[in-house]
Design a protein around this nucleic acid. Sequence first.
DNA 1: GCGGATCAC
DNA 2: TATGGTGATCCGC
Length: 903
Amino acid sequence: MTESESASDNQRPWQSYHTVYTNAKAGMDGVDKEKVQRIVYEMSKGSKYFENEERKEAFIRQKIEHMRARAAKLSATDLSHYQKVVDKRILELEATRELSRIWLHVDMDAFYAAVETLSNPSLKGKPVAVGSMSMISTANYEARKFGVRAAMPGFIARKLCPELIFVPTDFKKYTYYSDLTRKVFRNYDPNFMAASLDEAYLDITGVCKEREITGEEIAEELRSRVHEDTGLTCSAGVAPNRLLAKVCSDINKPNGQFVLPNDRMAVMAFISSLPIRKIGGIGKVTENILRGVFGISTCEEMLRKGSFLCALFSRSTADFFLSVGLGLGGTDMPEARFRKSISSERTFSATQDAALLYQKLADIAEMLSADMQKEGLSGRTLTLKLKTASFEVRTRAMTLQKYICSRDDVLKYASKLLKAELPISLRLIGLRVSHFNEDKGGVPVDPTQKTLTTFLISEDASRRIVNDHSSLGPDLSDLHFMNERETALSMDSHETCQYEFGNPFESTHLPDMDDNNCISSENAWEMEKTCELSNNKTAAMVKTADWIVPTPKSPKKEILRVSEEDYSVQRESEDSNPDRLNKETSGNEEPFSSNEMKQLFWVDDYKCSLCGAELPSCFVEERQEHFDFHFAEKLQREESVLDSSALMPRQRIVPKDCVASQSRRKKQKSQVSKICYPNPRIPCRTQTVAVSQLSVSPLQSSSNQISPKTHLNTLQTGTKPYDRTTSNVIKEATISKPSMSDILASSRAQNFDLQLQTLGPFFRITAKSLDTNRELGRAEGLIRVWFGGRILHLDSIRLKRETLGMERSIFGIGLFIGAVAIRYGYDCGCKTAELLAINDSDLYHSKLVRFYKRIGFKAVHEVTGSTIGDMPHMLIWGGIGTRMDASVEELLVKWCSRLKSQK
DNA sequence: GCGGATCAC
DNA sequence: TATGGTGATCCGC
């Protein structure tokens, strides 16, 4: 932010409060925007809604910063590569340009307000808003002069325009008039596409030819006939495609029209200066990102910055942006689309009274069930939507074995979902059912879903009547048919190459295995790694080819889903270091020999001779630890030449009954509860759920589940999620230990992101690079109940190979992952942490034990397998080695300085 | 499949 | 006093 900007922010803070209301809309030309902005700001300031908007804005700003950084990192080589990609892509898109069809978009002027004025002529000439004090649906043009507009709360609108007349919505009326307009539309295109009650797209190519008149004349005629039949005015846009027609209908609103000729030059001239926000599909956020990151504000600039767009967005998104820059849009008639979900939600005054919330839930379930039965629908996925008193929105979903539609069924499962969220203070509850029974019939869903490319090219899509749903009410006829981005770009169901071995967090199919249906964890790990590696490589390479020579029928869909970052990383490695790929794939490097290990020394008494990491000589322990890292790397390489990863203590052999437990776990899948810790610098909702949310997994509501509970919970005042950092009492209790946010802040300072997932008693912690989004390592374990209290059972900690070369490994990603586990255990009330330093070979075993001792564990038992007493240990741990324990609290204290000083 | 976010009307 | 409801899609797990 520049100085002048921040200065004006201080003097005129409303300028930094971005709402959708300032978006230029028809009829708002003469509005004093500064004044509107100020009033909106002043009316909103300090409210919960406002605070939430600020949180969201901060999040977007951060996103923009991150993308900016990524854009800045692109090398000249990268950019010239992407420029070639763009040039090629533009040619391909250009080849799909279709100028033979004439589309007309018709949009009723201030529809609801106009209808109300029709039925109550005394409103004529006066400012009218349809809606309530809390929300306005439509404002007429008289009201818009004051800055009043749709989606604005009524009480703010009244402040802007004290004379404003409020009229409640009456959908019956609007549907009646909508039907009248549609009768007119049908004369020009019997297959017209209704976009909503007041908007439609008509392909008037045929009628223009038949009557040998221009699109302009058709538009004039249609508009006057609509006026004759309804008394309402409308605006129209005529253009070679729907995207442009929609933009055109907005130009001479109200009661006007604009015609864009079917001529490439005319289209390009039109698009060149068009603000991107005018394009359907580009909203407030996308506009902000495009402007903030790339300085794009007009469609033409999409083409100029094409290389950046291709580098930073997914292919489909980049394609959409480029096609916007070229003024391309849908010209064919898309297939009829059927409803995919049905929902019901209500806002009420915020409450945390559980009984009241259940009552609201029952009401919603009732309404939803009634709607479903009206439509003859039943579905198997139920989604609960919640909006907290602070306007944070959450959804919780479950997919059932059976299809449901009855009130009782809906309520039964919805209650389970809600129960897991209590206690909570809510202002909205909603329910949605999807995965309809009819889905299986395959009628509505095109089996060969189109990509944007094929969508743009294909003109042969069979025409279907999509406008004759009047009897079904507004819901169905209001489905969106016109948004190419939405209708054409869905590419679902990528298959990842993953094998699961008794992992409670994942439950896809088992790989083909031996007769005994069992596989050692070693093999599992190897297979997973091998597969992951080859998969990534193939994907990246095919992706490269795909960009350059797109194949309409891509061999594997998942390939297209490879993230852009993977792509750029791959490119980088190809460009700058051709050997890297070979290294990674050959996997035949010689592991460190014992001699090589000895070669670790400190260059200039400061720098590691093996990896270049710098560490002053006074860091004795850290140096030892650093040595251990290289040692772990060596262990890993020696253990598996195929395995490209380094494995820091790996323990565990999957028991023989893994298949049985697998299937049991499969059933639990939909109930995985995931907790993400967002960047602590960003105030957003998940931050405060750090601990309290851990107890919400539906699984944990059943009797034998461990409900992670923090000793700090007892200090909670009650319902509101507490904030450790602001409560003095709580601060006192944690002062000597790193909090979860401390740990996360430290990890983020080192540019990686930690995530904790729980499933009942099980947990998993994964570390990901913020730069590449790749996983760097993970830990898994569970909280188990024992006589003396709960125990944090650490099953495995794995680090990926790329972690090891990094400078940050001085402080060890493993340490951070461990720290999250320990902190989680601490918050769950565990006093003790336990693990098994596996004894695969004596040589490494003693090293492993030393490593664990250094970080705070003590050996408690040697599991040798030679005594009967070892049986329980072996059953639990699946192997032999040294059982080691540590005090959770002591570990936290011991690691404190490191985890708190990294910020 | 889930959850968050965005978008449109 | 007070900031909606419905449906769809995309992305990243």
